[in-house]
Simulated assay, not measured.
Amino acid sequence: MKLTQGQFSFLPDLSDDDIRVQAQYAIDKGWAVSVEWTDDPHPRNTYWEMWGHPMFDNPDAAAVVYEVNECRKAHGGKYIRVIAFDSTPGWESIRMSFIVNRPAEEPGFRVVRQEAEGRVIRYTIESYAVRQPEGARYA
C-alpha cells in the first residue's frame, strides 16, 4: 500500500531534480523549507521529527536536496518529507508538503472498531507498523 499524504502522493516518486524544482518554488515564494522524517505516518501524526533546522533564509534549493540526502543516509528506511512554511501574517502555516522517501515495504493501515456504552461504535485507523516498537518499525 502506498501512503498518500501531501502533494504529489499519487504520482511516481520524485527525483532529486523534482525535489529541487519544488523547493525552489517554495523559496521563491518566501516560504521556509524543512525536512522531516518519521516511522509512524498516521494521517493525524502531523508532527514528524525535524531533520536539522528550518531553512528560513536559504536562497538555493540545492541545499534542500543536500539535506534530504543526508536525512536519507541516517533514516533511509523511513518516511521523509519536505515541508514549506509560510510565515506571512494571516497564513502562518504549512503551504506545501510532500513525501520524498518511503520504506521499501509499506504495511498500510487497519480499521479498529471499539464498542462503547449503549449502541455507540467508534472507529479509528491504526498503522500496522505500530505493532513494532518505535525505532524498529522499518528496516
Rank of each mutant, 00 (worst) to 15 (best):
T4L: 08
F8K: 12
F10P: 11
F10H: 11
L11S: 15
P12G: 06
D13R: 12
D16A: 03
I19D: 02
V21L: 12
Q24K: 08
D28A: 06
D28G: 14
A32K: 09
V33W: 00
V35L: 01
W37F: 02
T38F: 05
D39K: 01
P43H: 04
N45G: 00
N45D: 06
T46H: 06
T46G: 07
T46P: 02
Y47H: 13
Y47A: 09
Y47I: 15
W48G: 00
M50Q: 12
W51Y: 12
W51K: 00
W51H: 06
H53K: 15
H53Q: 15
P54D: 02
M55E: 07
M55Y: 07
D57L: 10
P59V: 13
P59D: 14
A62L: 09
A63T: 13
A63P: 11
V65I: 08
N69R: 11
E70G: 10
R72T: 10
K73M: 00
A74N: 07
G76K: 01
Y79I: 04
Y79W: 15
I80Y: 01
R81C: 02
F85D: 13
G90A: 10
S93W: 12
M96D: 13
S97C: 12
I99C: 11
A104R: 01
A104H: 00
A104E: 10
E105K: 15
F109T: 12
V112N: 05
Q114Y: 07
A116V: 06
E117L: 14
V120P: 05
I121G: 06
I121C: 04
T124R: 06
E126I: 05
S127T: 14
V130D: 09
P133I: 04
P133L: 02
E134C: 06
G135H: 01
R137I: 01
